[in-house]
Structures are given as C-alpha cells and as structure tokens.
C-alpha cells in the first residue's frame, strides 16, 4: 500500500454530519469547474475529467497543479478544470510539461492527451519525456479515433475498424497494427508507473481512479514519469449508442489493449514532491 504522504489542512475537514446527502454522495469536485462541457452524449471524457479532479481534490494539490491540454476533443479541458492550465500544440504537451516542471519542480504538472495527440503526432515528445524520467503525470485517453476532426483512423484504431479515413476497415497491410503505448512506454527506464484502465463499467472506473491517484502520487514522491491510459468510448464517431459503445470497449478494445499495470515502481515514502 502507498503511504498517504499528503498533508491535509485540518480546516478542510468538515464533519460528515454537517453535510447533505448530495454533498456526501455526489459532490462536485472543487477541481471541476461549474460549467457545461461540449462533450457528446456518451463520451467518457467527462468521467475521465471527474476522476482526475477527484484525485487532485483528495491529494489537496489543486492550488499547485498545472494541467496541459492537448489538441483534440479535450482541447477545452482548460475550461473544465479549476486549476491553472495551458493548451499545447498538437502532441507537444509532454514537452510543454517538461518546461513547466523543470522551472517549477515543486508544482504538480499533468498532461491530458488523446490517442492522436499522444500516440501519433506527439509520439516523439511522449517517448522522450518518459526516457528522461520527467517527473510529470500523463492522462492518456484512448478511444481509437480522432474525435475532434470527425472520426479518422488513429494509431490506436483496431485492425478492421471502419473510420472516415479507413472506410474499408483498418487494413493491416496498408496502415499497420495499433500502437500499444502503455506496453511501449513501460519498458523505458525512468518510467515509474504505467497503467492501462478502462471506463466501460463502474468497477473499471473505480480501478481507473486508483491508477490515476497512484500516478499523481508517483509525481508527488518525485519518482519520475507516470502515465495512465484510459480506454474510452466515442459513440458519435463509432456510430454506436452509448451503452453499445461501452460494450464495444469491453469486447473489442480490451482484448487488443489488455488492462493492468505495466510498470509499478515501489513507492518511496521518504522523498516527496522533490
């Protein structure tokens, strides 16, 4: 188990008896802005945002956290998180996060990136940030398509999967096989934690949150690069109903992108927040 190294301000503690049921059960995380999102119905970005926000709240790090948004559907993330945020060029979030972290090592820096952003145009930036053991946290949302531009083939698109730029299904001979970024990054020295989780069921969502928390704790402990890949749905571009899309993650994506921790360093309890 990870020792909880985070100091909680006693004034933040509220007697549970003073809270309403709504506050106790479904309180909006402080790190999530009170604003409607632009995400399509059934999209899992909202859930992913909430998990990150809950973890930031629980670790009480909102006031020293800086997020870096990508180009893609989550380009608007800066609007939805109640912490400082930058919007990077397409794929360059890990380089930008490197710049932020190197001049502010006491701050918590995370990137939030999609699969086109991280695994295609930003593949060099993510691999080298990992290779440097950059003490940042990466939340990688993999929904197997380019969402913002209307559902084109991504590096994570499954073989045979139809997209607007692979209308006959992804052809192995023409476009190769999907990139498994978690497996790829896990074998790089300097990487502290890599986990792939899914958002297709409440049970998996709970596991995803645990992984996100662990990733942020790695950074707080100064242990190096941490990444959580989240398998997510895109009902709009997959042309499916939301529930159908979640089932598709479970039955089609999980066999190609197996869930689990690919690298999980022993936590350091003595060092923190370097």
């Amino acid at each position: 188990m990870i020792a909880n190294t985070v100091e909680v301000d006693p004034s933040d503690r509220v007697d549970p008896l003073d809270r309403t049921v709504e506050e106790l059960v479904a309180q909006r995380p402080k790190t999530l802005s009170e604003i409607d999102t632009h995400y399509c119905p059934g999209c899992m970005h909202g859930v992913a945002h909430r998990l990150v926000a809950e973890v930031i709240d629980e670790l009480n790090i909102r006031e020293r956290t800086i997020g870096v948004a990508p180009v893609g559907c989550s380009v608007f993330a800066y609007n939805y998180f109640e912490c400082d945020f930058a919007v990077a060029a397409h794929g360059r979030a890990p380089a930008m996060a490197t710049g932020l972290k190197r001049v502010m090592p006491d701050k918590v820096i995370f990137t939030y990136q999609g699969d086109g952003d991280l695994a295609s145009i930003g593949s060099a930036e993510i691999l080298h940030a990992a290779a440097r053991g950059e003490n940042i946290t990466v939340v990688f949302v993999n929904n197997a398509v380019y969402g913002m531009t209307g559902g084109q083939m991504a590096p994570t698109t499954l073989v045979g999967m139809k997209t607007t730029s692979s209308p006959y299904g992804r052809d192995l001979k023409m476009s190769g096989a999907p990139l498994k970024m978690s497996e790829l990054i896990a074998q790089i020295d300097g990487v502290a934690f890599v986990s792939r989780r899914s958002l297709h069921s409440p049970a998996e969502i709970r596991k995803a949150k645990k992984a996100i928390r662990r990733a942020f704790e790695m950074q707080l402990n100064g242990q190096g690069f941490s990444m959580v890949e989240l398998l997510s749905s895109c009902p709009t571009n997959w042309d499916m109903k939301p529930v159908e899309a979640l089932r598709w993650i479970e039955t089609r994506m999980v066999p190609v992108f197996p869930l689990g921790d690919f690298k999980n360093s022993v936590p350091k309890n003595s060092v923190r927040g370097v």
Binding site: V68, A86, A89, A95, M96, T98, G99, L100, R102
Partner: peptide, 9 residues
C-alpha cells in the same frame, strides 16, 4: 515547446 512551458511559468 519546452521553452513555451517554462515561459508560461
């Protein structure tokens, strides 16, 4: 982009 990040700080 690293310069961009550091400058944002």
């Amino acid at each position: 982009n690293m310069v961009y990040g550091a400058a944002c700080a």
